[in-house]
């Protein structure tokens, strides 16, 4: 399981300010912490970065790799910023990952970049027409992206399929559909296709105290479906790994000593499996 540390995102105020001021301190501190917590790669999300994206991505890649011996996940919609980042990326620590292409023709040049720089690419299974309705639609889009990858010369083992995790608070039925899609993706090639998710989106919009619970258990659910990597909070995922046996026991119908924990696991899986309707207070019911 590859954890791609998610904390260096322009959405976070502290990170955004550091990016604007080109202040290496906070960026390197956050990158180092994620590495120590078990990240195998660091996501550098600079947003759409329409102005000066090339500079910013290069600065992010070098700033991160100055202190952390890991590859970087280049996360922006700006293709030329991605290319700039690829040029300075130190492949000694592993090959970079591009986040992302999709089934939208405007995003196909990303595949070309992946092939040219021998980088790996995330293929988000959405098209121009909006969000996929179910697992089958995700698999259909995945097949299209795989065909495009072959066309542009990107080996399928360098493609990570992303089924697009949606918020459980507003799109509850997709929690299970994403898990089904992950299973389907693996069957689409031999060796199985690699998969990745933006995990924390599952709990976006949920109360703060609930977020780690949803993130951890959902991670385990997707891991059991065969997920190979996640853009996530490395600390939370390390916690999840510690709890995995407990969760698997509860899911297998065994009793565990910690009854509070057992109820928490059962109730959370009832939500993911669509057996109970989500509400922010679902754990109190």
């Amino acid at each position: 399981m590859l954890i791609i540390g998610e904390k260096l995102s322009i959405i976070a105020k502290r990170v955004r300010e550091a990016m604007m001021k080109k202040d290496k301190g906070p960026i390197q501190e956050i990158a180092t912490r994620q590495w120590k917590e078990g990240s195998g790669m660091i996501d550098a999300n600079i947003g759409p970065a329409e102005d000066g994206g090339e500079d910013l991505m290069q600065w992010m890649v070098t700033t991160i790799q100055e202190v952390v011996p890991l590859p970087v996940c280049l996360d922006t919609t700006n293709a030329s910023a991605i290319e700039a980042g690829l040029k300075v990326h130190n492949n000694e620590w592993g090959r970079p990952l591009i986040n992302s292409t999709s089934n939208d023709p405007e995003r196909f040049p990303i595949l070309e970049l992946g092939a040219k720089y021998h980088a790996q690419v995330i293929g988000l299974t959405v098209g121009k027409g909006g969000l996929p309705a179910d697992a089958e639609e995700r698999a259909g889009i995945a097949a299209e992206i795989m065909a495009r990858a072959a066309e542009y010369g990107l080996p399928l083992e360098d493609l990570y399929l992303d089924p697009l995790v949606l918020q459980v608070a507003t799109s509850q039925d997709h929690a299970l559909k994403v898990a089904e899609a992950i299973k389907m993706f693996q069957e689409m090639n031999e060796p199985p296709m690699k998969t990745v998710v933006g995990l924390s989106n599952i709990s976006n919009g949920c109360p703060k105290a609930l977020r780690p619970i949803l993130n951890k258990y959902y991670f385990i659910m997707l891991m059991n479906a065969g997920l190979t990597s996640a853009i996530a909070d490395a600390h939370e995922m390390a916690e999840a790994m510690k709890e995995k046996k407990l969760v698997d026991d509860v899911l297998a119908g065994k009793k565990i000593d910690d009854l509070r924990k057992m109820r928490e696991i059962e109730k959370t899986y009832d939500i993911f499996m669509n057996r109970t309707l989500y509400a922010h207070s679902y754990l109190e019911m």
Partner: peptide, 15 residues
């Protein structure tokens, strides 16, 4: 117009 918020409000009121 949000089923999850509708459920949440009913929970809060019954709590």
């Amino acid at each position: 117009l949000d089923i999850n918020l509708s459920k949440q409000l009913n929970i809060l009121i019954t709590q």
